[in-house]
Each structure stands twice: as C-alpha cells, then as structure tokens.
C-alpha cells in the first residue's frame, strides 16, 4: 500500500477545506468569468462594426430605427451607480463594517434590479422590431443579453446579502450540523462560519460587477451615442 494514502470511503476529509482556499478560488473565478464575459460581448461589438461597415442592401440602420437615448442613459446610470455602491459595500465589509456593507449592498441590489425593470420597459416601448435591419438586431440582442448578465450578477449579490443577514450577529458561533445546508440527512458541514465566505465573495462580486458595468458603459456609448 502506498505511503501517501490509504483506502477509505470517507468523504469527511475532502470537506475540510479551509475558507482561505475557497476565498482564493472565488477571486480567481471572478476574474476568469469576467474575461469570458468580455469575449462574449466582443462578438456583439464585432457584429456591430462589421455589419455597419458592410451595410448590406442599405438596411443596416433605417431612419425609422431610433435607440431611446434617454431611457438607455438611465439604465446605464443605474448599473454604474450600482457597481460603485457594490464596490463601496465590499470595501466596507473588508474594513469589518458589516452594517454599511448590508445597506450599501441593498442599494446596489435595488439599482441593479431597477436597471433590469427599466430595460424591460424600454423593450416594451421601443418603437422598432427585430426585423428592421442590422442595427435593430444588434441593439436588441446586445442589450437583451446584457441585462440577463446583470440579472445573474444581482442573484449573486442577493446570495451574499442573504447569507449576511441570516448570520447577522452570529459571530463565531456555529450552527446546527446539517441544518444549514437544508439536508436533514447530513451530519456535518464543511463551513464552520458561513459568514467567513461572504467577505471574499463580496470582493469577487464587486470586481465582476465593476467589469460588467464597464461593458455596460461601452454598450451605451456604442448603441445609444455612436
């Protein structure tokens, strides 16, 4: 038998992973996921300039197709301010100020969701349809998928806030084994203090949300202003 390991069917060792490792994982993953997102929207950026330069059948951008600049600006502003709030919230949590983290986090969440709602309003009132040329296609596809990314990121923020609220004031105290994971069959848990993961989670979230906001500003510049 090998000196490195012995036969065992026990999963308990695997579960005992230190929160530091999980924190590092989250940070790295947020950076990697941000680069994948950039490449995802790069395809739409490419489509925009490519179709614009080809202008096939002169149907790239008929004059009837007008992007609603006002609403678009408001949506982008919501995203940017939300990203700033998220950044601030993560900084506060880093400093140990959980109360400010929660309030700033809620503000960020509200603004992000407002952007989603306003985007739906924009689609409802937009005045042109998907069939009206290249620009209309790129506009609807790009903004529609962007807002799905925003929604997903807001889900992430919500999970952090929800954990933070649930264990508010819990301090270092543990919890009932098995209860927290929602599985009564479980006898143990790998995380002693769920709150210990909120801090790196918030940092990773803030980074990704900032990147997504930058993509949002680029979207706004290209689709509404250019």
């Amino acid at each position: 038998m090998s000196e490195l390991a012995h036969h065992s069917t026990d999963y308990s060792v695997v579960e005992s992973e230190s929160p530091q490792v999980m924190a590092r994982n989250l940070r790295v993953a947020s950076q990697l996921w941000a680069s994948a997102t950039v490449f995802f929207f790069f395809a739409f950026l490419f489509a925009y300039f490519y179709l614009r330069s080809l202008n096939s059948q002169h149907l790239w951008h008929p004059h009837t197709v007008k992007a609603p600049v006002g609403l678009g600006t408001v949506i982008t502003a919501c995203v940017v301010v939300s990203a700033l709030a998220g950044w601030y919230a993560a900084r506060r949590l880093e400093a140990g100020d959980e109360r400010s983290w929660r309030s700033a986090g809620i503000a960020a969440l509200a603004l992000g969701l407002a952007a989603v709602v306003l985007q739906i309003v924009e689609f409802w009132t937009i005045g042109f349809g998907p069939t009206e040329g290249g620009f209309a296609s790129v506009f609807l596809g790009w903004t529609g998928l962007y807002i799905l990314f925003v929604l997903g990121t807001m889900y992430w923020l919500e999970t952090l806030l929800a954990t933070s609220f649930r264990y508010r004031g819990a301090g270092a105290a543990g919890h009932e084994p098995g209860e927290a994971s929602g599985d009564p069959g479980r006898t143990g848990d790998d995380i002693d203090r769920p709150i210990s993961l909120v801090r790196p989670g918030a940092g990773a979230f803030a980074f990704y949300w900032a990147v997504l906001a930058v993509i949002g500003v680029a979207t706004w510049l290209i689709l509404y202003l250019l």
């Binding site: 929800a162 994971s181 929602g182």
Partner: peptide, 13 residues
C-alpha cells in the same frame, strides 16, 4: 442555488 438564495451556507456535497 436555492439554498444560497435563502442565505444558507455553501456545502461541498
């Protein structure tokens, strides 16, 4: 994901 939405902690299993 649903557990996380409710603020319950992550678990590996």
């Amino acid at each position: 994901p649903v557990q996380r939405l409710l603020g319950k902690p992550p678990t590996l299993r």
